[in-house]
């Protein structure tokens, strides 16, 4: 099984050696190999080509391949480091590495900033914040009047934009997050510490191979 993994996996476009990925991320080699099981499952759910397409990502997140969501789109775009419209295995592991419980908090804060910087200007602007609040309301059952939305956005913006220049920069974001640490809760996935238990099949087979 271990041999099958290594021979087949090497033929997959964008495949990278687990030892290389483990060296660059908080994951161990075994964990990278377990992540390959998860990657295989997601990347073969619609088109079995060893790449995660947007619809496959949506299917994995929402159990619905057609469910569009601004935030899922942003996560997909940030995972797609090469910006070629698909997530390769190496991109998947490197990006999930940020969500590892042992990843540096600075990386998590920076990732969230890029997530919310919708137009890639290097700042989170008021319009972007309002657009995200409206997107959240759209996906949920919450109904808030435009006045209330304006009030929430205004209040938050004034709180975060401490320099008062009408935009939130990375320094202000870091300071804001330190005051509201719950904002970083989504940026840590405890599952990643137990990934070899969740997807043990390769680890078991690789141990057999190692002992031979």
């Amino acid at each position: 099984m271990g041999c099958l993994y290594s021979k087949n996996a090497r033929n997959v476009p964008g495949y990278e050696e687990p030892t290389v990925l483990a060296a660059e991320t908080p994951f161990t080699v075994d964990e990278v190999q377990a992540l390959y099981e998860l990657f295989k499952k997601i990347s073969s759910s619609i088109i079995d080509d060893g790449l995660i397409h947007k619809e496959e990502f949506q299917l994995a997140l929402f159990r619905n391949r057609n469910r569009r969501n601004l935030f899922a789109d942003r996560v997909f775009d940030l995972f797609d480091l090469k910006r070629n419209g698909v997530i390769e295995f190496g991109e998947f592991v490197r990006s999930l590495g940020v969500f590892h419980p042992n990843a540096p908090m600075a990386d998590k804060i920076a990732f969230a900033f890029r997530l919310y910087d919708l137009r890639h200007t290097g700042y989170i602007e008021r319009e972007e914040l309002k657009e995200m609040v409206l997107a959240l309301l759209h996906e949920s059952d919450l109904v808030l009047s435009d006045d209330v939305v304006e009030m929430i956005v205004d209040k938050t913006f004034k709180d975060a934009d401490t320099k008062g220049d009408g935009r939130i920069d990375q320094e202000e974001w870091k300071e804001f997050v330190s005051r509201y640490p719950s904002l970083m809760k989504n940026m840590t996935l405890p599952y990643l510490k137990d990934i070899t238990l969740a997807f043990p099949s390769f680890v078991l087979s690789s141990e057999v191979e190692d002992s031979e």
């Binding site: 997140l61 969501n69 899922a72 999930l96 959240l136």
Partner: peptide, 26 residues
């Protein structure tokens, strides 16, 4: 906590699109 007491980013962070733990559900 109700939406009115949450700041805009707290509200946004409740999005299902940001909850990647569902990737690990079988």
């Amino acid at each position: 906590t109700t939406p009115l007491t949450m700041n805009a980013f707290e509200l946004i962070s409740t999005s299902q699109g940001l909850n990647l733990s569902s990737l690990f559900e079988k």
